[in-house]
Write a protein that binds this DNA or RNA. Structure first.
Length: 280
DNA sequence: CGTTAGACACCCGAAGCTAG
DNA sequence: CTAGCTTCGGGTGTCTAACG
């Protein structure tokens, strides 16, 4: 092949290269704008670490929600979390976790059609009318509450659930997440929540659920040590510290041990709490 | 699937008491 | 004054079975 013949081929090659570059750019734009949640293992959901270590979802007494107005929530120092709306409890957390599961495989921001009865069963609830009413209210809380979160990597404002409604034509319910939520899952800053274990947490053991989130936010195969005072603060538990340390916390730890989520938990004399988290 | 109704279960913060 | 122990009950959540 002489030089004259190879010229058009080179031109074609360079055009092809340009087209490929353009395609790659387009793909990146789509990824940046859209994207979807990371995939969770079967029967598991996931909690962003920053939320798991804060009082956003709190083991509060039934029916005792406080109203926040861009209030600063207790959290670790490496993140700033503000919230407006009705305080969320651990049952709202169940709804949030299940909503994330239901959204698996969907592009984040697309409507996710789901069955309410199945949704309720997945989080271990009955399907009486009260439960449907409760679910509605929980979705309302999640869809109207506004979360302001700022870390060294990102800053965003969002509703934990973007929208929730019934399709009047099909009669089916759907929910939608805000793509901004993907920031909370960036850099693998989330822990998996075993929904089977969660369902087995005895009724009313709200602190155990909170602690399951907290435990999930740390690596397995290691012993974790944390100050009891911090745990009480971050979990948003009110009441006296000594009641927390002598009653609530031991009970929650025992519950997690029963479900094999932690081992060798101990409350030390100096007020520190330790446990070993097995590598599943 | 979604509803209804009624009976039942129970946590946790408040508060009292005592000892040091 | 603090820490440990104990009791109490308000206010809700939960369950079941039968039915539309």
């Amino acid at each position: 092949m002489n030089e004259e013949q190879s010229k058009p081929i080179k031109k074609l090659e360079s055009t092809l290269k340009k087209i490929q570059e353009r395609a790659n750019t387009a793909k990146k734009v789509i990824e940046q704008k859209g994207g979807s949640l990371p995939l969770f293992p079967e029967m598991e959901s996931a909690m962003p670490n920053h939320l798991a270590r804060s009082a956003l979802f709190a083991p509060i007494r039934p029916g005792r929600r406080t109203i926040y107005d861009k209030s600063i929530l207790a959290s670790r120092d490496d993140v700033e979390i503000l919230y407006s709306g009705k305080q969320l409890d651990m049952a709202d957390n169940d709804v949030f976790l299940q909503a994330l599961r239901a959204s698996q495989g969907y592009a984040t921001g697309a409507p996710v059609i789901f069955n309410r009865a199945e949704f309720l069963r997945e989080i271990g609830r009955s399907t009486g009318k009260n439960d449907y009413v409760w679910l509605e209210e929980s979705f309302d809380r999640l869809a109207t509450g506004t979360l302001y979160i700022k870390t060294k990597n990102y800053k965003t404002v969002l509703h934990l659930i973007d929208a929730y409604a019934k399709n009047e034509i099909s009669g089916k319910y759907w929910l939608r997440l805000n793509p901004e939520i993907l920031k909370l899952f960036s850099q693998k800053s989330y822990g998996f929540i075993d929904m089977d274990a969660r369902r087995q947490i005895n009724r009313g053991q709200e602190l155990a659920k909170w602690l399951q989130n907290y435990v999930a936010s740390h690596e397995g195969g290691k012993t974790h040590t944390i100050d009891g005072k911090s745990l009480q603060k971050w979990s948003g538990t009110m009441g006296r510290f000594r009641d927390f340390m002598s009653r609530s916390l031991p009970k929650a730890l025992a519950e997690l041990e029963r479900l094999c989520l932690i081992q060798n938990s101990r409350i030390r004399e100096d007020g520190k709490v330790t446990w070993y988290k097995p590598t599943r």
